[in-house]
Amino acid sequence: KPCPVNFEFMNYTIITSRCKGPQYPAKLCCDAFKDFACPYSDDLNDLSNDCSSTMFSYINLYGNYPPGLFANLCRDDKIGLICPAL
């Protein structure tokens, strides 16, 4: 199932301006990631589409991040990464 969100031409500076190597501080990176991804959480959590794979492809592409950075860095709750209140 295709992703209803077009991640190709989004503005990734919300992440790339705050999450930088070689340190990749977890707090900065994960907060930035959540700020970017949370508006699309419903589509990202729907694993019957390819939204999350697509989004990570572009995040890694634009930010030149090592594979798995956010998966390895970010942990919140039992259920997942808690999004900031709107």
Partner: peptide
């Protein structure tokens, strides 16, 4: 209130299945 979250299932798509 029901809070939004990004599931670990979605986050796991950040992992690549190679380089072990």
């Amino acid at each position: 209130t029901n809070r939004r979250y990004i599931s670990y299932g979605a986050l796991s798509k950040n992992n690549v299945p190679c380089s072990r």
